[in-house]
């Protein structure tokens, strides 16, 4: 007798547990407000990324096309993957001294692991992360970027 009661009890609890699960899923079926899908390419216009999002490394320039980089090479040293290469050049300043300035700041996006050490270690805050995250290109060579814009100069007041 007891075994029959247990048998019926098993069935009852089993069915109840299944119904509970069905209740959850069925309730979501009637609640389209809970949908979390992002329609990605369509929502590009109003898609706001978090400001700290590590999309890619950039070198901020101001309106006068000036950057902060003094080509000290610390970013290059602190990068674990060798994705940064700083190529300096030496120029003669107006007062006749030799000065080391930035020629090219090469950044290989394909090798970057976004650890953030370059940005953290930069003494002059010349580097930053932008939130641009769409990196797909058809040619691998396009992933090697020169961060300083052509004709850009060192900002006044930033010293070595």
């Amino acid at each position: 007798m007891r075994s029959i009661i247990n048998y019926l009890k098993d069935i009852f609890w089993g069915v109840m547990s299944l119904l509970k699960g069905l209740k959850v899923t069925a309730s979501y079926f009637w609640r389209p407000g809970a949908i979390v899908t992002e329609k990605y390419p369509e929502n590009r216009k109003y898609l706001v990324m978090f400001e700290r999002c590590k999309g890619e490394l950039i070198m901020p320039h101001n309106d006068k096309n000036e950057h902060n980089c003094i080509s000290c090479g610390i970013c290059q040293m602190s990068c674990p993957n060798g994705s940064i290469e700083v190529i300096p050049k030496t120029i003669d300043t107006e007062d006749g001294k030799k000065k080391r300035i930035l020629d090219k700041h090469i950044y290989r996006l394909g090798q970057c692991t976004f650890c953030g050490l370059c940005v953290k270690n930069c003494p002059t805050h010349a580097l930053a992360f932008s939130t641009k995250f769409e990196h797909a290109v058809f040619n691998k060579a396009l992933l090697i970027k020169v961060l300083n814009k052509p004709g850009s100069q060192l900002k006044k007041g930033v010293e070595q």
Binding site: F50, R52, C53, K54, T113, F114, C115, G116, F129
Partner: peptide
């Protein structure tokens, strides 16, 4: 992951 991204800039690989 959103909380992570807002503070650290990374979602899964936070560093």
């Amino acid at each position: 992951l959103d909380i992570f991204e807002e503070t650290t800039g990374g979602r899964m690989i936070v560093s």
